[in-house]
């Protein structure tokens, strides 16, 4: 029986086509998951969502009223986490990327610790935060101790993204700047930081996402009091924790839980687009590509 010979070009075309189809399928699946999730949230939460829901404090364990106090607590926790984590993380990143040789023992130890830290489950951070910030430092169940615990969680992601961003800036800039008699600090401020802005912004966004989504670590540190916080030393319930509580512990809390989840996701999208726009604008102003 004569063998059917498929010409190479046809075979390659088939291979190309199947590979491309697979890729499109993957993209479709990924987008479908996102769209499905969003659609589910909108369908479930839209009815319950209103201006009152955003501006009233929760009543009857969250079955009635809104999430105003929860939103305030969430944003305060996020703010504290960022204020504490960002300077530390970026300073570490500058040290690792600019001043320590990539293969040095010191750099390896710091990087390894950060990897380990990144892999620690959030419940463990919660226990640590409870033991250290709440009990040892005496901050109790408070927004401050929750924020600081989150800051510890954010350190690895903020540091590694910033370090990678700065390392991606071509060495030629550093050499040229040095050859022009510019100090390292000047090169850092005028060339390296601006060029690394997209990476810094991306790290910040991932960090904010993590912080907003965090539940377990906050359970033991900022607590779950749903009143409007009077100070940073008050306990405050984060949005993610509120959703968890409503859907798990409060019978009849499904509708507000849906609405709160919708708010959380919108908040995330909103902050993301704002930060993107800000970073883009900053880079356009400082650096022309």
């Amino acid at each position: 029986m004569p063998e059917i010979i498929i010409p190479v070009s046809v075979r390659q075309k088939i291979r190309d086509f199947s590979l491309q189809s697979l890729m499109y399928l993957a993209v479709l699946l990924v987008s479908a998951v996102f769209v499905w999730l969003l659609a589910d949230l909108v369908q479930g939460g839209m009815a319950h969502l209103s201006w009152a829901f955003l501006t009233e404090s929760p009543r009857d364990a969250g079955r009635a009223g809104g999430i105003a106090s929860i939103l305030v607590s969430t944003l305060l926790i996020l703010l504290i986490a960022l204020i504490a984590a960002v300077p530390l993380a970026w300073a570490t990143a500058v040290l690792l990327a600019e001043f320590v040789p990539i293969d040095s023992r010191f750099g390896r130890i710091v990087r390894f610790s950060l990897y380990v830290l990144a892999g620690v489950p959030s419940i463990v951070f919660g226990l640590f935060g409870n033991a250290f910030f709440s009990i040892y430092l005496g901050l109790g169940f408070s927004i401050l101790s929750g924020g600081l615990t989150l800051a510890c969680m954010l350190l690895p992601i903020l540091t590694s993204t910033a370090e990678a961003g700065m390392r991606a800036v071509p060495d030629a800039y550093r050499l040229s700047a040095a050859a022009l008699g510019m100090t390292r600090t000047a090169a850092l401020i005028h060339l390296i930081f601006p060029a690394a802005t997209p990476a810094l912004a991306a790290g910040l966004l991932i960090g904010i996402g993590r912080a907003l989504a965090e539940t377990a670590a906050l359970l033991f540190t900022s607590g779950y009091v749903d009143r409007m916080p009077g100070s940073l030393l008050d306990s405050g319930r984060a949005l993610a924790l509120h959703i968890f509580d409503l859907s798990m512990n409060v019978p009849g809390g499904d509708m507000p839980a849906y609405a709160a989840a919708l708010v959380l996701v919108s908040l995330l999208l909103g902050i993301n687009s704002l930060a993107m726009m800000f970073a883009h604008g900053l880079q356009r102003r400082r650096i022309l590509t």
Binding site: A179, G181, P194, L288
Partner: peptide, 21 residues
């Protein structure tokens, strides 16, 4: 060293304009 490098200009193999105006 900063003053020294000011006295000595250097031009590299690949042009390295900074990503600025």
């Amino acid at each position: 060293v900063q003053t020294l490098r000011r006295r000595i200009g250097m031009v590299f193999q690949k042009p390295v304009p900074f990503p600025l105006s």
